[in-house]
Amino acid sequence: MSSPISPAPATVPGPATGPATPVQRWLAQARFETMTILGHGEQLLVALVLPAMALVGLALSDVPDLGPGRRIDVATAGVLALAVVSTAFTGQAIATGFDRRYGVLRFLGASPLGRDGLILGKLGAVGVVITVQLVVLGGLAAVLGWRPEATGLVPALVTVALGAAAFLALGLLLAGTVRAEGVLALANLAWVLLLGLGVLLPTDRLPDAVQGLARLLPSGALGDGLRLALVEGHWPLAQWLVLLVWAGLAGAATVRWFRWSD
């Protein structure tokens, strides 16, 4: 049999070689997912550009009313909450939904990475991207005059971690149960709705009829939690409880109903 390309013995399979170590596999997946997010224009738009525009817009205008506290401080806490929602929920839901559509989840599930490694890799990538967001958006906010309460930095990081866990679980639940086009529509719709349900707008600024509901949503718990920590220096224990319940429920539902193929 003729071949226009000369043989390359190095490409021919040899004896079994085995997998890389678990840590190497998970780090490789986290790196791959991180590079994919940071190299993808639409993901960057949602993760950094839109939150930065929201920050500048809120800092330079008087509307909407954000309530007591320095406006830039309240606005920054809300924008950091928005960044977490953008990456952990919207970005991951859409990316995972289309990976499921194209068979990527099945292919990687059959590779040495496996399903556990895939989830751990996503978790790592979300963590890295949120760290980048906190640095970039925090830097921009500092230029605009943001001065967070020093005693609130640790509880703020805990709030970010719990919020990321809850929203990642919700994002994966959506990605694993709805067709890709539906995921795209619902994730973007939810992103817009959540802006007004406690993410950018404090729940105490909402009409009485929706205040209670918003405080029980992960959006309200994340936004209010970050405002309590960064503006007032408090430990937002009630908001952590809400986020933990959402993370647990959404995580359990994802394990139960997530489908790896479309």
Binding site: T17, A28, R31, A95, V104
Partner: peptide, 24 residues
């Protein structure tokens, strides 16, 4: 196929090679 469409072939294959101890 099972290929992620938003990355390049080279980046994907290097990624998969990192999942193996002694890849091609």
């Amino acid at each position: 196929g099972g290929l992620p469409v938003t990355t390049t072939a080279r980046r994907l294959l290097h990624h998969i090679s990192r999942l193996h101890a002694a890849p091609a």
